Simulated scan of single mutants.
Amino acid sequence: MVRLPLTPAEVERGRRLGALLRRARGDRPMLRTALDASVSPETLRKIESGRVATPAFPTVAAVAEVLGLSLDALWTEVNAPEGGTGAPGGRLAS
């Protein structure tokens, strides 16, 4: 299977997703968050840094659940124009 290169829009959405998850995690250790979500710390690190722009939905859903994020709000924020539409302080309601 040949994977097509990501579009600039996909790369930007991945960057937004990573930044949003990083903000939502706050001071919580990455290792604890990853283990609670049943993903590897390296996977979470790559998502948060934007190196994995299109992570699998179950991975995103697991991390969002651990962080108490609503998937609807997460989707809205990640797909919003630059600047976003999230709640004050960058924290999304669950």
Rank of each mutant, 00 (worst) to 15 (best):
residue 2 V to N: 12
residue 68 G to M: 00
residue 52 V to E: 07
residue 5 P to M: 14
residue 41 P to A: 14
residue 36 D to S: 07
residue 76 T to A: 13
residue 72 D to L: 12
residue 83 G to Y: 01
residue 15 R to T: 15
residue 55 P to T: 12
residue 57 F to P: 10
residue 32 R to C: 04
residue 48 E to T: 02
residue 92 L to H: 05
residue 31 L to H: 01
residue 5 P to R: 14
residue 93 A to S: 08
residue 12 E to L: 14
residue 14 G to S: 07
residue 38 S to Y: 07
residue 90 G to P: 04
residue 71 L to Q: 01
residue 63 V to Y: 04
residue 47 I to Q: 08
residue 8 P to K: 10
residue 83 G to T: 01
residue 28 R to N: 00
residue 14 G to E: 06
residue 45 R to T: 05
residue 31 L to E: 10
residue 50 G to L: 07
residue 31 L to F: 02
residue 45 R to M: 04
residue 39 V to F: 07
residue 87 A to R: 14
residue 18 G to D: 04
residue 60 V to A: 13
residue 60 V to P: 09
residue 79 N to D: 07
residue 4 L to E: 15
residue 19 A to V: 03
residue 24 A to K: 10
residue 4 L to R: 15
residue 33 T to H: 01
residue 69 L to G: 05
residue 11 V to Q: 15
residue 85 T to D: 06
residue 41 P to K: 11
residue 32 R to T: 04
residue 13 R to S: 09
residue 33 T to E: 03
residue 3 R to Q: 14
residue 21 L to I: 08
residue 55 P to W: 09
residue 90 G to K: 03
residue 16 R to V: 09
residue 41 P to V: 12
residue 43 T to S: 12
residue 27 D to C: 10
residue 13 R to D: 13
residue 14 G to T: 03
residue 67 L to P: 06
residue 15 R to S: 15
residue 25 R to Y: 06
residue 56 A to V: 03
residue 1 M to T: 10
residue 20 L to G: 01
residue 1 M to D: 09
residue 44 L to S: 11
residue 65 E to F: 09
residue 71 L to R: 01
residue 82 E to P: 02
residue 60 V to L: 12
residue 76 T to F: 05
residue 11 V to H: 12
residue 34 A to F: 06
residue 28 R to L: 06
residue 65 E to N: 02
residue 15 R to G: 11
residue 38 S to A: 15
residue 39 V to P: 08
residue 33 T to Y: 01
residue 52 V to H: 00
residue 32 R to E: 09
residue 39 V to C: 13
residue 58 P to T: 13
residue 52 V to G: 02
residue 60 V to C: 04
residue 2 V to H: 14
residue 92 L to T: 03
residue 24 A to W: 10
residue 42 E to V: 11
residue 80 A to V: 05
residue 71 L to W: 02
residue 75 W to K: 02
residue 87 A to V: 01
residue 40 S to V: 14
residue 28 R to M: 08
residue 43 T to P: 12
residue 59 T to E: 09
residue 73 A to S: 05
residue 89 G to E: 03
residue 71 L to P: 07
residue 48 E to P: 05
residue 77 E to V: 03
residue 38 S to E: 15
residue 77 E to K: 00
residue 28 R to Y: 00
residue 39 V to S: 11
residue 90 G to W: 02
residue 30 M to K: 04
residue 55 P to Y: 05
residue 27 D to L: 10
residue 17 L to I: 07
residue 5 P to T: 12
residue 55 P to A: 14
residue 68 G to C: 09
residue 13 R to Q: 15
residue 75 W to D: 12
residue 73 A to C: 00
residue 19 A to S: 13
residue 38 S to V: 11
residue 78 V to P: 02
residue 31 L to P: 04
residue 92 L to C: 12
residue 72 D to A: 14
residue 49 S to M: 01
residue 83 G to W: 04
residue 26 G to F: 09
residue 59 T to H: 01
residue 83 G to A: 04
residue 50 G to Y: 10
residue 1 M to N: 07
residue 8 P to M: 12
residue 1 M to Q: 08
residue 85 T to S: 11
residue 74 L to Y: 03
residue 69 L to Y: 11
residue 13 R to E: 13
residue 63 V to T: 08
